[in-house]
């Protein structure tokens, strides 16, 4: 996973905005790509986006807070999302989550001290056949058991 851009460097943001500005419904792709580049969407970046799109900050903030995949606070580089959807839950995903919390010594919603990992519980990831499932960044891990967790985390 590449390092995130510092929010002091607004150049990548400007490029993202320029790329999408004239598309209808451009706020979503701009926010997604901006979060991809910077790792999160703090007020500094949202102000720039609002100004460039000619809308109010509260409108951008409304979108960001509506969708759970957006975050306004810095998250660890590797994002773990453990599915607590119905299928995964009955197949024991709570135990997976508990094990990750223990391994990383953090709670759901937190980052590790070194900002290497961020842990979140998610809704259904759409891979119920592999339950219990989790994702780390874009990688999907299925058919999990708590004992498999340390090896998986070690890859990152």
């Amino acid at each position: 996973m590449a390092d995130f851009v510092s929010i002091k460097n607004l150049e990548p943001l400007k490029q993202i905005i320029a790329k999408h500005k004239d598309e209808p419904g451009c706020a979503m792709p701009i926010l997604q790509e901006t979060q991809g580049a910077y790792g999160y969407l703090p007020i500094e970046l949202q102000k720039e986006i609002a100004e460039a799109l000619g809308v109010s900050l509260s409108e951008i903030y409304g979108i960001v807070t509506f969708y759970t995949q957006f975050t306004t606070v810095q998250k660890g580089k590797n994002r773990i999302g453990v599915c607590l959807g119905t299928a995964c839950y009955v197949r024991g995903s709570q135990k997976i989550l508990d094990r990750i919390e223990r391994e990383l010594n953090i709670k759901v919603g937190d980052n590790t001290g070194d900002m290497k990992f961020a842990l979140a519980a998610t809704r259904c990831l759409g891979a119920c056949g592999l339950a219990p499932v989790m994702m780390i960044n874009d990688d999907v891990y299925g058919d999990l058991s708590p004992d498999k967790i340390p090896d998986i985390l070690a890859k990152y």
């Binding site: 007020i43 949202q46 809308v55 109010s56 900050l57 509260s58 409108e59 951008i60 903030y61 409304g62 807070t65 509506f66 306004t72």
Partner: peptide, 19 residues
């Protein structure tokens, strides 16, 4: 202007200025 707007969703939804 749009000084305030809907933030968050579901039961947590509120009408607020940003941040």
């Amino acid at each position: 202007l749009g000084a305030m707007g809907p933030t968050s969703r579901g039961f947590n939804k509120s009408i607020d200025p940003a941040f």
